[in-house]
Simulated assay, not measured.
Amino acid sequence: MSDERPPAEDFASVLNASRSGWNAAMGLRFVRATRDEVIGELEIGEAHRQPYGLVHGGVYAGIIEAAASVGAALDARAIGRGAVGLENHTSFLRAVREGMLRVVARPLARGRRTQVWEATVRDGEGRELASGRVRLLVVEPDVPIAGEAIAIDGEEDRR
């Protein structure tokens, strides 16, 4: 059985047009979204800051996981599967209070059952603010997660 995957199509405009949930609440916008690389941007606002006025560490961890999850899901989608996060290890390297955050995620390992993605968050000046690795589980579309099957390719949940 061949494990060849189709060429990397850019889904950024599709993702931005249907943005909802956490990505919409945080203001995360995708610049590029393929199965080989995901780039997203977020303009820092009041909702992103912790009580000291610094960007909350959860924002870094969240955009790292979002970018890695999108890439892994696009890769898994090519073979009729989905992907969900199992583990996120994010290191905070530099604090900022304002400006643009840019996350770039790329795969380190893509297996039949798990993937590992690495991501870096930089500010508008290119300084590295955070880095992380996300381990994801590749799942069949009919496997229930939190009580429901995941939707792949816009399909309704399969129950």
Rank of each mutant, 00 (worst) to 15 (best):
G124Y: 01
R97K: 13
I63S: 03
D36M: 07
V138I: 15
A78N: 13
A25T: 13
V31G: 05
I152M: 01
A78S: 15
A76T: 06
A95F: 04
L42P: 07
G99A: 04
D153W: 09
R127M: 03
I145N: 04
S91A: 14
G154C: 10
M1R: 02
G62E: 08
V134T: 12
R122G: 00
E41Y: 07
E87M: 07
E87T: 11
A68W: 05
E156T: 13
T114F: 01
P6T: 03
N23Y: 00
V70R: 06
T90H: 02
R94G: 04
I63M: 15
E125R: 12
T120H: 07
T114M: 02
A105P: 03
A24C: 03
N88G: 02
H56R: 08
R135I: 10
W117I: 02
L93M: 13
E125S: 14
N88C: 13
I39H: 02
A66N: 11
V84H: 03
V96L: 08
R159A: 15
L74V: 09
R77N: 15
D10P: 04
A8E: 12
V70H: 05
R94H: 11
I64E: 09
E4Q: 11
S91T: 14
G58V: 07
Q115L: 02
G82W: 02
A119S: 04
E148V: 15
R158D: 12
L129E: 09
P6N: 07
R102V: 12
E156W: 10
L108V: 10
G126C: 08
D75Q: 11
R97A: 13
V104S: 09
L129R: 05
P6H: 03
T34D: 12
V143Y: 04
E46I: 04
E65S: 04
G82V: 03
A33G: 07
A151K: 11
G21N: 13
L93T: 07
I44N: 04
I63R: 06
D153C: 09
L101H: 00
G57F: 10
L28W: 00
N16R: 00
G124W: 00
P6M: 08
R97L: 03
I44E: 10
R133K: 14
A8M: 09
G132I: 04
V59G: 05
Y52R: 13
H89T: 15
T90R: 00
V121S: 05
G147T: 06
W22H: 15
A109N: 08
G126P: 12
V59F: 06
D3G: 11
I64K: 06
G21H: 09
A83L: 10
M1Q: 05
G57A: 11
I63C: 08
E43I: 14
V116A: 03
F92M: 12
V134K: 00
G53Q: 09
P141E: 05
G80M: 08
E41I: 12
A17V: 01
F30L: 14
V116Y: 00
A151M: 10
E87V: 01
R110W: 00
H48Q: 11
D153L: 07
A17E: 13
F30W: 14
E43A: 15
E46N: 09
G85W: 01
L108R: 04
G21V: 01
A73W: 06
R113K: 11
E43M: 15
A67L: 07
S91P: 01
A130I: 06
R102F: 02
R94C: 06
E128S: 12
S2I: 08
G57R: 08
G99F: 03
V14Q: 10
G45I: 09
P6K: 05
F11R: 11
